[in-house]
C-alpha cells in the first residue's frame, strides 16, 4: 500500500502545492479576500497586512487576482489537456493497433503539424480567430495532441509486438480486449506521467499567449495576463509582475515533481502490486 513516509520529500512538496493551487482554483470565489476587478488601493502598493502581495497596476489586490487567476489558468489548462490527451491517445492507440493506411495518414499529418513550432502555429491561427475560451482550448488542445499521439503510438506499438499481445491475438481476442486489457494497463505509467507534462505545457503555453496579449482577454484574469499588466512596473523596481510569474513556475514545478515521482514509482513496479 501507499505509505506516506515512503514518498520522497520532493514529491510530497509537489503534492502539497499542487493540492493548494487546486483548492485555490476551485474555491476562488470564497477564498479571495477581494473581488476580481475591485480597486482597493493605490497603484502598486507594496505588500502589507491588508494586501498580502500588494496591489497591481490599477490598484487591485494582487493576492485576490492570483487566486482568481489560478481558476482561469487551471480551468483552461485542464480542459486543453483533457482534449489533447483524449484525442492524442485514442488516435495514437488506434494507429498502433490498426496500422495500415490509417496509421500512415495520421502519422504523416502529425509530422506536418509538428514541423511548425507550436507557439508559432498558435499565433498564426490566433491572428484570425477571436481569443475566446473555446478557441483557446481548442487550439491548445489540438496542437498539443500531436505530442500525445506520438507518445501513445510509440508506447502502444512497442507493446503491440510483445508476445503476450500476439498470444491474445492468436486466442482470437477482439480489438477492444487487446487495447483495453492487454495494452492499456502496460502503457499507463508513461501516459500518466505524460499527462502531468502536458498539463504543465498547457499552463506555460496559455501563459505565454496571455503574456503576448493573445490569450485570455481582460477583464478576466489569468497569470500570464497579469504578468503583462504589471510588467511596466519592473523598470521602476516594482516586482508585481514577478509574483504571477512565480505562481506559474511554482505550479509547473509542483506538477513536474508529482509526475516524475509517479513515473519512477510505476516503472519500478514490474508486477501489478505496490
Amino acid at each position: 500500500m501507499l505509505d506516506i513516509k515512503r514518498i520522497p520529500l520532493g514529491a510530497l512538496l509537489g503534492l502539497f502545492f499542487t493540492a493548494l493551487f487546486l483548492i485555490a482554483a476551485i474555491f476562488a470565489q470564497w477564498i479571495a479576500p477581494f473581488g476580481l476587478g475591485e480597486i482597493v488601493g493605490n497603484v502598486w502598493e507594496p505588500a502589507s497586512a491588508q494586501y498580502w502581495l500588494g496591489t497591481d497596476n490599477l490598484g487591485r489586490d494582487l493576492l485576490s487576482r492570483i487566486i482568481y487567476g489560478a481558476q482561469t489558468t487551471i480551468f483552461i489548462a485542464v480542459l486543453a489537456t483533457a482534449l489533447s490527451f483524449s484525442l492524442g491517445s485514442i488516435l495514437g492507440f488506434t494507429a498502433a493497433v490498426v496500422g495500415g493506411w490509417f496509421d500512415t495518414l495520421m502519422s504523416r499529418f502529425v509530422d506536418l503539424l509538428m514541423a511548425i513550432p507550436t507557439l508559432i502555429f498558435g499565433l498564426v491561427v490566433l491572428s484570425v480567430l477571436p481569443s475566446t475560451l473555446v478557441t483557446l482550448i481548442l487550439v491548445m488542445g489540438i496542437l498539443d495532441s500531436t505530442r500525445v499521439y506520438r507518445l501513445s503510438r510509440a508506447v502502444a506499438a512497442d507493446i503491440n509486438v510483445m508476445d503476450f499481445v500476439e498470444a491474445a491475438k492468436l486466442r482470437g481476442e477482439g480489438r477492444g480486449w487487446i487495447i483495453f486489457r492487454e495494452i492499456l494497463p502496460n502503457a499507463l505509467s508513461p501516459l500518466v506521467s505524460e499527462l502531468g507534462l502536458r498539463f504543465i505545457y498547457a499552463v506555460l503555453f496559455l501563459s505565454a499567449l496571455s503574456f503576448l496579449g493573445l490569450g485570455v482577454q481582460p477583464p478576466a484574469a489569468d497569470w500570464g495576463g497579469m504578468v503583462k499588466e504589471n510588467k511596466d512596473g519592473i523598470v521602476f523596481g516594482i516586482p508585481a509582475a514577478l509574483i504571477p510569474a512565480a505562481a506559474i513556475a511554482a505550479l509547473a514545478i509542483s506538477v513536474n515533481l508529482v509526475a516524475d515521482w509517479i513515473l519512477n514509482r510505476t516503472t519500478s513496479l514490474k508486477g501489478g502490486r505496490a
Binding site: 519592473i234 510569474a245 509547473a252 513536474n256
Partner: peptide, 13 residues
C-alpha cells in the same frame, strides 16, 4: 526539472 517548468518571462523579468 526547474527549467522545463519556468516560463520564459519569469526568467526574463
Amino acid at each position: 526539472l526547474a527549467s522545463t517548468s519556468l516560463p520564459e518571462f519569469f526568467i526574463g523579468y
